[in-house]
Nucleic acid binder design. Structure first.
Length: 545
DNA sequence: TGTTCGTTGTGGCC
DNA sequence: GGCCACAACGAACA
């Protein structure tokens, strides 16, 4: 067969060479191969306002990680005799132009379950307001489209189909349906077909942060984690070297306060961008398991974590409006407070609870925290203390995490807020004792909140209880150098439990069909209760005073 | 309809 | 480090 066809591989996630079925298919029998990435201004525009509540623009750390991943992809393509062609614009429009210009016969890109990519895949708007499906366009132009599932271990659609069209809502039922993951590709090509004539289109280099207009945004500290496939594979090898560690890995036993050497692999950001194939990761861990006497199992094991990822991808794919409370069938309807003051205190690490604030500083500086640290702050913001809507916390995480993943982030916020998957709202993480259990001396707090670095360990988790003499010796006066607690945890958590109980009862009575009016009614009632209790508390304080 | 089970709570006790 | 009471949910399955 003569090699006279051109192929285009469209990178979105899947920023890697290894286990990349779209790239492999594009390579085969092609004279020319065009590896393309389209920068979508909608995703990349910097948000000049420090950040308004609800802003979902990607933060600096994730953009940096992403650009490093593109640079590494380009470099790895060049080693194979190719290179990355970067464009800027509305992705599908750019793509259609390129398909025409280069007379492409094969269009290959990784399938993606996220609504953003689903909309890109399906509908394009051409010049005359005509709506076209990408697949329709391609078939009318005689272009073969290849869009394999390779971001996840399984095809979410298969699992949903096996379960009579409904996604499984528990991990165990997911496992039963899932079976054995698809293996990664075994062969990796040692060369790629050359890029053909590119015509007169402006092809960019991978831009720098400054070129994207992020230069003016101040950032105290950048994430210590570097993006890219090379870094991902190096990190994977380092993690897997310690076979005993891999075999005995139990997620819930990890130490959330460990930061010099994190308790987990920190491979999540690489999985998010597809710098690392989850199928390859899974297989490598299986290989370690084969060579040890015993190993842990899902859900707590290392491979169990990859299965959690697929679990959330599957549920999110099969649940309309997965990323919101309203019109989301699996989400409990709860009358969360609309309290921007508390939200901002949480977001800006000013809650007055050092354990919570240190975690929020780590989020801002590193774009990564341990899973249980995320639990602590998510519980605190929602059902544990502040009773703020999980969507608000989700937005903050979505902006600041380098590993923020649409399915996983939304799923975990519903989990932690007892809106779905997990319902035992009595179990509340203490913002004082949970961290103390792992780090009694408060080394984590001292590192991320240097203002508290000289506070004696007796008071480091509750500095407001320190006598004034101790505070002044530690050069940290509570209320001046570090805030007083925004709420009294004992009181707030009790109040949250009561509200959750009442909201749950309303959901049961209405059989899941809670109307907005009912929620408003319950919220009004909560506000009245709060007024009452504030009055009685201030009366008590007057009596005590 | 009833039973079992669920990755990761806290505080008190031994 | 393990055990218990606390107060208690819903999905899955029989």
């Amino acid at each position: 067969m003569a090699l006279n066809n051109s192929s285009l591989v469209w990178f979105r996630k899947g920023l890697r060479i290894h286990d990349n079925p779209a790239l492999e298919h594009a390579r085969k029998d092609s004279k020319h191969l065009y590896p393309v990435f389209v920068l979508d201004p909608h995703y990349l525009q910097p948000d000049p306002i420090a950040f308004s509540p609800g802003s979902s623009r990607a933060g600096l750390n994730r953009i940096k990680f992403f650009l490093e991943s593109l640079v590494d992809l380009d470099s790895n393509l060049q080693k194979l005799g190719s290179k990355l062609l970067v464009f800027k614009g509305e992705p599908v429009q750019v793509l259609i132009r390129l398909l025409k210009q280069w007379d492409v016969k094969k269009l290959c890109f990784e399938f993606d379950t996220e609504p953003y990519y689903q909309s890109l895949d399906k509908i394009i708007k051409v010049f005359d307001n005509l709506l076209l499906h990408l697949q329709d366009y391609a078939s009318s132009a005689g272009i073969e489209v290849f869009s394999p599932v390779s971001h996840t271990l399984f095809n979410p659609a298969d699992i949903i189909q096996k379960n009579a069209g409904r996604p499984p809502l528990t991990y165990q039922s997911f496992l039963k349906l899932a079976g054995t993951p698809s293996p990664p590709l075994t062969s990796t090509s040692s060369f790629l077909p050359p890029v053909g004539v590119t015509g007169d289109y402006e092809i960019l280099n991978v831009p720098t942060i400054e070129e994207l207009g992020y230069g003016d945004i101040s950032q105290e500290e950048f994430t210590p984690f570097k993006g890219g496939e090379s870094e991902a594979l190096k990190r994977l090898r380092e993690s897997l070297n310690d076979k005993e560690w891999v075999a005995s890995f139990e997620k819930p036993k990890g130490d959330p306060s460990a930061f010099l050497k994190p308790a987990t692999t920190v491979l999540s950001p690489y999985l998010k961008f597809g710098c690392l194939s989850s199928r390859y990761f899974y297989q490598c861990v299986q290989d370690v398991y084969k060579n040890v006497k015993k190993h842990t199992s899902p859900p707590v094991s290392l491979n169990g974590q990859l299965l959690w990822r697929d679990f959330y991808y599957t549920v999110s794919y099969g649940t309309p409006n997965f990323d919101q409370m309203k019109d989301n069938k699996i989400c409990k309807q709860i009358p969360w407070d609309d309290n921007d003051e508390l939200l901002i205190a949480w977001r800006e690490a000013r809650t007055g609870y050092p354990w919570i604030d240190a975690i929020m500083v780590q989020l801002r500086q590193w774009g990564w925290m341990h899973h249980l640290a995320r639990h602590s702050v998510a519980c605190f913001l929602t059902r544990g203390d502040l009773f703020v809507h999980w969507e608000k916390g989700r937005d903050v995480f979505d902006r600041l995490l380098i590993d923020s993943d649409w399915a996983i982030n939304n799923g975990n916020w519903m989990w932690l807020s007892c809106s779905s998957f997990f319902y035992q709202y009595n179990r509340i993480y203490s913002p004082i004792s949970f961290g103390k259990k792992y780090d009694p001396n408060g080394a984590y707090i001292r590192h991320f909140l240097p203002v508290l670095k000289d506070m004696p360990k007796e008071y480091i988790y509750e500095p407001w209880t320190a006598p004034i003499s101790v505070q002044s010796k530690a050069k940290c006066l509570i209320g001046r150098d570090y805030p007083k607690p925004v709420v009294d945890h004992a009181f707030a958590s009790k109040d949250c439990k009561r509200k959750m109980g009442e909201a749950y009862e309303l959901n049961r009575r209405m059989n899941g069909l809670v109307r907005e009016e009912d929620l408003k009614g319950l919220r009004r009632k909560f506000e009245e209760d709060q007024d009452q209790s504030l009055k009685s508390r201030s009366q008590k304080q007057k009596l005590i005073g």
